[in-house]
Design a protein around this nucleic acid. Sequence first.
DNA 1: AACAATTATTAGCATAGCTAAGCATAGGTG
DNA 2: CACCTATGCTTAGCTATGCTAATAATTGTT
Lengths: 141, 141
Amino acid sequence: MIEDEIRDIAGRLHAASIRLLRTLRREDDGSGLTAPRLSALSVVVFAGPLSLSALAEAEQVRPPTMSRIVDALVQAGLVTRETDPDDRRGVRIAATAAGRMLLEEGRARRVGALAERLRGLTDYERRALARGAELLERITR
Amino acid sequence: MIEDEIRDIAGRLHAASIRLLRTLRREDDGSGLTAPRLSALSVVVFAGPLSLSALAEAEQVRPPTMSRIVDALVQAGLVTRETDPDDRRGVRIAATAAGRMLLEEGRARRVGALAERLRGLTDYERRALARGAELLERITR
DNA sequence: AACAATTATTAGCATAGCTAAGCATAGGTG
DNA sequence: CACCTATGCTTAGCTATGCTAATAATTGTT
């Protein structure tokens, strides 16, 4: 396969992913959270408990930015922030049951909206998309 | 295919797309633009010229928010804002040559980074991803 | 001509992004 | 041990981004 073909595929994959997430983003209105808070909560639920700096790194923002987002999530009862007993400079941020539930509801709305669209495809086409998802997982590791 | 299988595929596709765009977002640092401005510029370049409300709709923000983003892009010489001659209440927002160039450079960085990762796959796997991109395009139309 | 609807901007608020600076703890090195 | 540096987080203060409400200008419709 020539270089230009690979680049072409990369371009189409990029555009298609943007389109997909733009489409699904419309489902987030009902969450009651702003986009950065929802995104941070999702990292805490799936990768947590973790330190503030690890969370900031995952979200590609600076620690002060994440510190205030965590303030809001703690205030809303969706995560807890506790001093790390092993290193008292650091904090451990963990999801609460309410946080996990709120996130799971939002995720279910997004995934449900996507599943609805997948219903219009053939089994063969859905399997092709499943295969694509696996490959994407692999190359972003 | 059972409902649960479709939902499972939707979930993995969703997660994989998020991962992909998170990875590629790191390439945007060099653009000199904030994320909302870069994203708005990309719509103007690919879908423009268009009205303010159409641009706000595409970006899923309210008109006042987009009005200020356009202010900044005009200030930076990346787009023009002119009164619509057919309806003098409205505006026509169009990309300048500088805007198209800046966007294309950024897109090339993202696509290049993705192409680099695709290089680690087999031709067969790359074609599977190309097929997945086509299907995503179709179901988000 | 008067009025209603549409399009965009302005004003004013909360949130999100940054850097710089501060505080506390950890961990070395004399 | 005493200091000194490095690390982790927060606070302070700025700009940018999001919203709603209100205003201005134009269009279209009685």
